[in-house]
Structure formats: structure tokens, C-alpha cells
Design a protein around this nucleic acid. Structure first.
Lengths: 189, 189
DNA sequence: ACAAAACGATAACAAATGTTAAGGCTTTTG
DNA sequence: CAAAAGCCTTAACATTTGTTATCGTTTTGT
């Protein structure tokens, strides 16, 4: 839990007692490579903190095609955040791409935090704002950058991503086919 | 200010005294068609509530092409929210597409709200979450829907948008060229 | 350790989307 | 009110991106 506590301390003012009470409502959970973090759950009630490993958010469209929307790695929070907030049916699935150790923050813990942590609402606001900024820049890039430019940008942001995830998932994240990504890489040389 | 007060009352528990104190820190501002809401501002310190009119968020890429990222209409909040949050240089511009009446919520008012409204942080969280949900669904659609499907969806969500904004801005919002949108419309008949 | 599955590169071809240019209509502006 | 600017459509052509299939390599599960 130390890893999670450190990240929380960087985000808000929180006492040791508060940290202790909050993390007692959380628990550790390990997922095997390829496992789905929540299978067929009617409601999404968990936020994950990644201690070790890598997780992707994927989305199947009506035609059966699979899209990779997002990757998350060590020390990051990940959730099907929209379904968590709205309590509507989830569109996404979270999948471990390596054997992955997480800390589960159940909705009950988060609601407890809103009610009882001095800066609980602020923590919620900061997390929502952080995701907002991430999505905003994603959209900006989808509008203004070509697939090749997005590929180059991804190499800067995730220097080691190629060694951790299959290339067809990277292609999917970029919004192009694996065949096309292969072509772009050749042109880049 | 009544319009703004009503929207705030729907979002959080807020007393008449709190409403009064908060709205006293805000002020009305009118923009002519085509005007930019903040020109060349170094820092973005205003959130707008639209009383009447329509505003678009636009973005110029390095090649000089203009992209329309977002539309906002009556009773909605609009801001260059990322720049507002991060206090970094703005990538976007807000532009009135009709003569538009707004209520300006300056950053000082919002910070005052965080500190002094009972549910100020909650309001901030709800606004961030609301935007997050919107952006998340935008990204989902960009991944899973074809331009034609996005066009049909837009017609459902904004039934009257065609009568209010030029078609080339709609094309830009959809991520396609005006010529291509014109082709798609013909196919749809 | 081995068989099966997954993976990435490549080629040939198909489909989607962009570019440029022209014409006619509408709206804006002086 | 008239000129100018903006706007939408259409066509012809160019470019980008997707589809399908094959092959050799690597990884995985047992």
C-alpha cells in the first residue's frame, strides 16, 4: 500500500490517520496476463492502482473489431471511469497485458473518502481533471496529427512501449490497421 | 443571472445567500458573431455560461488548417478548460458563431467557490466529470464510428445544428473535408 | 520440448478520403 | 443596392488507408 499512499500524498494534503483509514478499505488483487479485470460486471465499482504491470482499455465495436483506447502502467490509476461515474453499462473492458499487481479501490472506499477525507472532494476533482486533460490532448492529436505523426509522438511518450505490447495493439491505439503501421515504420527508416 | 443560478441549483446544494455571493463575482458579456472570446490571452482565466447563442472551440494546426473541436449552446458552460486548469498556453480559440450573450465566471470567482461554497469542490468535480464523460464518448465514437455514422449521430444529438452553423464547420467537427461531407449527404438520400 | 497459436512483414488489389478547380447560389458588407 | 465574399455541390484525379493472403519467425501453452 506504500506505493499508493505516496501517490495520494502527492495529490492532496492527507494525514497518516486518513491514509490508514482509507487504504484499509482497499485491497490487493493480482491478474494473470490476458485476464479481464472485471468480467461482465453489471456495474463498475472499482478503480485500480497499478503496482506493477500494464493494462489496456479495449472496446469492441458492433462489427466485432477490437479497439485499444488506452494503456496504463505502474503508479497510474485506471478504471472504466465513465461507467464508474454514470453507473451505466460499460462499453470498455480492462485487460492485463502482463501479469499485473493492482490495488483495488472499491466505490465504497471512494465514497467514504468524499465524505470523510478533508480533501476527498478535491482528490476526486483532481483525478477527473487529470483524466480530462489526458482525453483533451488525445482528441487534439486525433484532429491535428497524421497517423505517422501520432506514431512518432507515441514513441516519445512511451519510449519502451514496443517491448511491452504487441504491435497490432499499438496500431489499434493509433486508429490504423497493423498492416498500415508496418508500412509507416518502413517509411520512417 | 437567474439562468445560471438555476443550472447551479440543479448541480449542487447551494443556498440563496451562496448563490448571491457567487454570482456577484460574475458578470455578463456579449460577443458579436465571429468574435473570439479571448484573444491572445496569455492565461485563460474565464469560464463562460451561454445565455443565448452558439460558440465553437477551434484549433489551428501547424499546417494552417482549422479544426472545429466542439460546439456549445444555450445553458451550457464552455471554456478552454485544459488551459484554464493547467494555466499553460492555450491551443484552442473560442468563437461566437452568432451574436452571443454569456455570463463570465472568472477564475477568481471559481477559486472563491472552492474555498467558500459548502459544495464548491463538488461542483468542480461534477463539472470536470461531466466534461470527462463528454470527451470519453467523443473518443469512443472517433474509434468505432465511420464518418457517415458520426454524421448521422450528430443529426440525432443536434437536430437543428445545420440551421445554425456552416456545413464546413460540421465537416471539420466530424474530421472530414467539406467535399467529403457533401458526398456522404448525397449517399444518405 | 514440441505443436499450436500469435505475430510481423510484405505484396497486390480495393475502398475511402483528400485535393483542386469550376459554377451557381446566398449572405454579408460598404 | 451592388460588389464581394462566403458557401455548397459536383467532377476528375491523387493519395491514403484498408483488405486479403502468404510466409517465415517468435511466443505460448501443455
Amino acid at each position: 500500500m506504500l506505493q499508493l499512499k505516496n501517490v495520494l500524498k502527492q495529490m492532496i494534503q492527507i494525514s497518516e490517520e486518513e491514509l490508514e483509514a482509507f487504504t484499509e478499505l482497499c485491497y490487493e488483487k493480482v491478474f494473470k496476463r490476458k485476464a479481464l479485470l472485471s468480467q461482465e460486471a453489471k456495474f463498475i465499482n472499482e478503480v485500480y492502482f497499478i503496482k506493477k504491470g500494464i493494462i489496456r482499455v479495449k472496446l469492441d465495436d458492433l462489427g466485432g473489431t477490437e479497439h485499444t483506447i488506452h494503456f496504463a502502467i505502474e503508479n497510474q490509476f485506471i478504471a472504466d471511469y465513465r461507467a464508474f461515474l454514470t453507473q451505466e453499462k460499460s462499453a470498455y473492458q480492462l485487460q492485463a497485458l502482463e501479469d499485473t499487481e493492482t490495488i483495488v479501490m472499491p466505490k465504497s472506499a471512494i465514497d467514504w473518502g468524499y465524505a470523510n477525507l478533508r480533501q476527498g472532494e478535491k482528490l476526486g476533482r483532481l483525478i477527473a481533471e487529470h483524466y480530462f486533460i489526458y482525453l483533451d490532448s488525445r482528441i487534439q492529436h486525433l484532429y491535428t496529427l497524421s497517423p505517422k505523426e501520432r506514431y512518432d509522438l507515441m514513441n516519445e511518450i512511451f519510449p519502451n512501449i514496443h517491448n511491452r505490447v504487441p504491435q497490432h495493439m499499438i496500431a489499434s491505439y493509433l486508429g490504423i490497421t497493423p498492416v498500415h503501421l508496418s508500412r509507416l515504420k518502413r517509411q520512417n527508416q
